[in-house]
Design a protein around this nucleic acid. Structure first.
Lengths: 120, 120
DNA sequence: TGCCAATACCTAGAACCACGATGTATCGTC
DNA sequence: GACGATACATCGTGGTTCTAGGTATTGGCA
C-alpha cells in the first residue's frame, strides 16, 4: 500500500507528463490532446483515447486539473486547465524524468572511459 | 499475445536496456550488475535483485545471454555474456529508447512559440 | 564462539499502468 | 443513409516492475 519508495515504478507516468506539459500552454480537451501528442511527436508516440481519458480523470480527481464543459458545433467538449497543484505536479514529474533519463543516457553513451576494463 | 503494435508498453524495458548495455563491456554476474547500476547512476536508479535476476533469466531463455558458473572464493558466481542475439536486442532497444526520449524531450522543451492552427 | 554484515543466488505475490476493444452520440459528406 | 471524423467513456487484459522474503557462504569483530 505504501506509495512506492524507490524508483517511481520506473518510467511510468510519461503520458501524465506529456498531458500536463501540453496543458501548460493553455486549456485543451481530450480528443485534442490525443492528436496533439501524435502530431507533435511525428507519431513516435501515439497514445490512444483509452490512455488519455483515464489520466485526465485521475488528474482532475487529484485537483491537478479543472474541467469545463463547452458545447462547440453541437458537440460537447470538456476543456481541461492546469491548477497550481497541477503545475507543481508537472515540475516534479519533469524533474524526475530529467534525472532518470540523464542517468540512463550516461550509461548508454559511456565508452568505458575512466576505470574501464578492456572490452576484449 | 500479440507483441504490441504501437508504443512498446511505453518506457518499459529500461532495466533490460541497462543490463544489456553493461554486459556489452564484458561479462558480469547478477550481484555485480545490481551494484554497478546503483553506483554508476549515483543511486538515481537502484534496481533490486528481484528485478535484475528475473531479467537475466528471461534474457538467457531468449538466447540473448549465455551463462557460465564460476566458483570464486568459495562462492558461486554466474557470469553472463552477450550473444549476437543479445547484441541486436540491445541495438533495437537503444534505438527505440532514443526515439521516444527525444520525442518527449522535444515536447518538454518547446516554448509556446509558433505553431499550427488552434483547432477551431 | 557467536553474531552480523556483505556477498551471491533465487522466487512468489502484488501493484500498477498502459493498451486494445468496445460502446455511445453527433456532425458532415457522398 | 452509410460512413468517417469528432468527442466522450469504461472494461478487461497483459506485461513489468516492485517489495518482501528465502537460502547459503564468507569474513570481521566483539
Amino acid at each position: 500500500m505504501a506509495p512506492r519508495e524507490t524508483n517511481p515504478n520506473f518510467m511510468n507516468g510519461v503520458p501524465e507528463l506529456l498531458i500536463l506539459r501540453l496543458l501548460q500552454h493553455g486549456e485543451m480537451y481530450g480528443y485534442e490532446l490525443v492528436q496533439a501528442i501524435r502530431d507533435r511527436t511525428g507519431s513516435s508516440i501515439a497514445l490512444g483515447e483509452g490512455v488519455v481519458y483515464p489520466v485526465l480523470h485521475n488528474l482532475e480527481r487529484d485537483g491537478a486539473l479543472t474541467a469545463q464543459r463547452k458545447p462547440v458545433n453541437g458537440r460537447s467538449r470538456i476543456y481541461y486547465s492546469l491548477t497550481p497543484t497541477g503545475s507543481r505536479r508537472l515540475s516534479d514529474l519533469a524533474a524526475t524524468w530529467t534525472t532518470l533519463t540523464s542517468a540512463i543516457q550516461t550509461l548508454l553513451t559511456e565508452t568505458g572511459a575512466p576505470h574501464a576494463q578492456p572490452v576484449l
